[in-house]
């Protein structure tokens, strides 16, 4: 009988990513309800020293797969190792992050194990130890609650920035186990040939706590400096509406909305964004929304906690100055 909850931790260049702790925290909450344990699966190269951190957030066990071929994520290597471990240990549930890595991994892993997978979930509950997952569809214009059939393990990915972190308990320690796995070079059909880092150390939009976004009201790419100045001051990531991206003012990776990124920061400041339905779908789960727009009739004001009717070219620089006073 399949037993226990697994979470697949994520690391980048040997550092655990925040989603790993969110997964352990949520995994622990579910496991407590089931009266079972949480095991974190950690893949990487020389990564074992990071395992105790997962224990502090609630992992009972950490299974470490250490191999230089696992240093950077590749679909083939990661799926191969995790599928082999899962077939041997038979967990009841496997949770991954709905990050770029987790979304790539989850589908292939589920197909290899022949089980169902619920992507990008924002809420989990249990029905007799079976996972019930709530996930946005149509970029958040609706939500689907799904269950699994003939699936052991039940696999789901958790949206970053949604699940509450447990308070780390420094006295708590996890049992750390070296994984036994066979990784055959002939299975590795893809190769990472280059890693291009973006300049700056701002978190990705999908993981950002604070976002300042600019839309058509910015009037041109040269004006984004006022947004960047505000963003730099508060440590926010810069986003953009689809019209700003389609006009070529900002890169595609900055787009928030239905054909861009779906975000859930603590604070979303929308500057010169009218609030097209596709944009609203992508940011409505933000905790606080501020809208700055000249047009008092703009739909964005219907979703904003705080609306400022005014010219963003006056309001945004004034906002930056006012924030400087309190920092």
């Amino acid at each position: 009988m399949a037993q226990g909850i697994w979470i697949v931790a994520e690391q980048k260049e040997g550092e655990l990513r925040k989603i790993s702790f969110e997964l352990v925290s949520e995994g622990k909450r579910l496991a407590d309800k089931m009266g079972q344990s949480v095991t974190a699966i950690l893949l990487g190269s020389n990564i074992k020293e990071k395992a105790p951190e997962l224990g502090k957030y609630g992992a009972d066990k950490v299974i470490v797969a250490d191999d230089n071929r696992l240093a950077t994520y590749t679909t083939d290597a990661y799926v191969s190792v995790i599928a082999e471990l899962a077939q041997k240990e038979e967990p009841a549930i496997i949770l991954l992050g709905a990050s770029v890595q987790g979304k790539d991994l989850s589908g292939r892993l589920a197909a290899r194990l022949g089980v169902g997978m619920a992507q990008d979930c924002v809420e989990f509950s249990l029905d007799n130890s079976n996972l019930v997952a709530k996930r946005p569809i149509y970029a958040g214009k609706a939500y689907a609650t799904v269950t699994f059939k003939d699936s052991s393990p039940q696999i789901a990915t958790a949206r970053p920035n949604v699940f509450e972190l447990n308070e780390p308990d420094e006295s708590r320690s996890a049992e750390v186990i070296d994984a036994a796995f066979s990784l055959d070079d002939s299975q590795l059909k893809t190769k990472v040939v280059e890693v291009i880092q973006e300049a700056g150390d701002k978190p990705d939009l999908t993981e950002a706590e604070l976002i300042v976004s600019g839309g058509r009201g910015m009037k041109g790419p040269e004006n984004y400096n006022i947004i960047e100045e505000l963003a730099d001051l508060i440590g926010a990531t810069v986003g953009a509406s689809r019209s700003a991206v389609d006009a070529g003012w900002r890169p595609h990776s900055d787009q928030v909305g239905q054909t861009g990124k779906v975000v859930s920061p603590n604070l979303y400041i929308a500057c010169g964004i009218s609030g097209a339905i596709q944009h609203l779908a992508g940011m409505s789960t933000s905790k606080y929304i501020v809208a700055i727009n000249k047009d008092p009739e703009a739909p964005i004001f219907q979703k904003a906690d705080y609306g400022v009717v005014g010219d963003l070219f006056d309001v945004v620089p004034a906002l930056t100055e006012e924030i400087k006073k309190i920092l």
Binding site: V115, Y143, P296, D305, V308, G310
Partner: peptide, 28 residues
């Protein structure tokens, strides 16, 4: 292997307050 049990609309997000002020500086 995945069954949809229920589809629900998102939680309604209500319009909040319009920030008062005579000038952009005051509003900010």
């Amino acid at each position: 292997k995945i069954k949809i049990m229920q589809i629900t609309p998102p939680e309604e997000r209500l319009a909040g307050k319009i920030v008062e002020g005579e000038t952009p500086q005051e509003k900010a």
